[in-house]
């Protein structure tokens, strides 16, 4: 059956992996492109040309300040990706470290780390972001930190579960019998064996980070003007929903497609990396 195919063949045959790859690739590509080129300057206003209908010059029209919507959306991709990378990076680094520690030390370490992550699960990320904003004031950095902190327990749990399974395997027992220390075993044997699980979760957390950032920006406690942000575009669009409903469509579509792409990529990766689990899709 499918297990005989090579990794690349499995990737190409997997429909959601391909679709997810294309969408995620487009997100990254557009973000990179917008650094060097956008059709218009995304923050340059032109009051006379506001609410322009789509034309060849402004493919998606212009907003209430006459800014080119396509350009803002393209630049907004930068914001989403930056938030995703930094927030997931924070979660990945601390979460994996804690998870590996819990798994390597077991006993009290494990108990404390796991209880703490249980606790964090009960505490919605957005509440922490709100508290941070309440004390330090709104801003992209606070939002990123809050999102990052709340992906720590996700990674910690996942890492600890996967690592515990690897610790029980024969080759690890052999390494322990050979006198290798816990740290060395963790680096040489445990980590390489759980990378695939982490990769899958990373794409999914990335999607969640984009969603969370959009929500915070929509509420006005995420990234601040003039940084183009999809979430804030939506909150601005809402005030003019009777005047120009399309403004409320494009940014949301951009968020949904990015998140959809990353989710599909994550699902696809899970199947492609471990074909035995692929049966249930």
């Amino acid at each position: 059956m499918g297990a005989n195919l090579t990794f690349v063949q499995r990737c190409i045959r997997h429909r959601s992996f391909v679709a997810g790859g294309i969408l995620s690739g487009a997100l990254v590509g557009i973000a990179l492109l917008s650094v060097v080129w956008t059709p218009h300057n995304p923050i340059k206003m032109n009051i006379r040309g506001r609410f322009a209908d789509p034309t060849w010059n402004h493919l998606l029209g212009t907003d209430q300040f006459g800014r080119d919507i396509l350009s803002i959306i393209m630049s907004g991709a930068q914001n989403s990706i930056t938030v995703g990378v930094v927030a997931v990076g924070i979660g990945l680094f601390f979460g994996v470290s804690l998870g590996l520690l819990a798994s390597a030390r077991r006993g009290w370490w494990e108990e404390i780390i796991m209880r703490m992550s249980d606790f964090m699960f009960a505490f919605p990320a957005i509440l922490l972001a709100i508290m941070l904003v309440a004390t330090i004031g709104p801003g992209a950095v606070n939002a990123i930190v809050a999102i990052g902190i709340f992906s720590i327990p996700v990674f910690a749990r996942l890492t600890r579960g996967a690592a515990n399974a690897v610790w029980a395997r024969e080759f690890v027992l052999a390494a322990r019998a050979a006198g290798k220390g816990r740290f060395r075993i963790t680096v040489e044997h445990i980590l390489p064996n759980i990378v695939s699980v982490l990769v899958v979760q990373t794409t999914i957390q990335f999607a969640l980070a984009i969603l969370a950032e959009a929500a915070l920006s929509y509420l006005g406690i995420g990234s601040q003007p003039p940084t183009p942000s999809w979430g804030r575009m939506l909150s601005e669009a809402q005030t003019m929903i009777f005047l120009n409903p399309w403004l409320a469509v494009y940014p949301g579509l951009a968020i949904a497609m990015s998140v959809l792409g990353l989710n599909l990529l994550g699902d696809g990766l899970r199947d492609v990396i471990d074909p035995r689990l692929a049966r249930e899709r």
């Binding site: 959601s16 929500a215 979430g231 669009a237 929903i241 409320a248 949904a256 998140v259 959809l260």
Partner: peptide, 26 residues
């Protein structure tokens, strides 16, 4: 069902709210 739910997961709830307003209110 799986396709639609995949889409459902990817849509931010506040955008869905806006779309609902667009359709049912506007």
């Amino acid at each position: 069902v799986m396709g639609v739910s995949q889409l459902g997961i990817s849509v931010p709830n506040f955008w869905l709210a806006l779309l609902l307003i667009l359709l049912f209110a506007v």
